[in-house]
Computed example of a mutant assay.
Amino acid sequence: MPAESRVVDGLRLALTTFTTLPVRAGRIDRPTAGAAMALAPLVGALLGAVLAGVLLLLAALAPPLVAAGVTVGCAALLTRGLHLDGLADTVDALGSYRRGAAALEIMKKPDVGPFGVVALVVVLLLQTAALAELAGRSWPAVLAGVVAATAAGRLAVTVACRRGVPAARPEGLGALVAGTVGPVAPAVGAVAVALAAVAAVPGRPWQGPLAVAAALAVAVGLLRHVVRRLGGVTGDVLGAAVEVVTTLVYLGLVLSG
Score class of each variant (00 low, 15 high):
80 R>I: 02
50 V>E: 07
137 R>N: 02
213 A>K: 00
61 L>G: 02
159 V>N: 03
52 A>K: 01
105 E>F: 00
152 A>Y: 06
72 V>S: 05
81 G>I: 02
98 R>P: 00
30 R>V: 11
140 P>D: 08
212 V>G: 04
205 P>L: 11
134 L>N: 05
224 R>P: 00
178 A>Y: 13
53 G>I: 03
185 A>I: 13
81 G>C: 02
13 L>K: 01
192 A>C: 04
11 L>R: 04
97 Y>S: 09
52 A>G: 02
245 V>G: 12
209 P>G: 08
218 V>T: 15
182 G>I: 12
191 V>Y: 04
21 L>W: 15
140 P>G: 04
235 G>H: 09
233 V>K: 03
189 G>W: 13
165 V>Y: 04
35 A>G: 03
118 V>E: 11
244 V>P: 00
109 K>Q: 15
241 A>H: 15
126 L>S: 10
79 T>V: 04
87 L>W: 09
215 A>F: 12
44 G>T: 03
244 V>Q: 07
185 A>K: 08
40 A>F: 06
199 A>Q: 14
185 A>Q: 14
25 A>F: 06
195 L>W: 10
252 G>Q: 13
241 A>V: 07
32 T>Y: 09
217 A>V: 15
182 G>R: 09
202 P>C: 10
203 G>I: 14
38 A>T: 02
161 C>K: 03
219 A>M: 13
103 A>E: 10
151 A>R: 01
17 T>I: 08
188 V>M: 09
212 V>Y: 10
231 G>Q: 15
239 G>F: 05
158 T>I: 03
254 V>W: 07
11 L>H: 11
256 S>A: 14
239 G>A: 06
196 A>D: 12
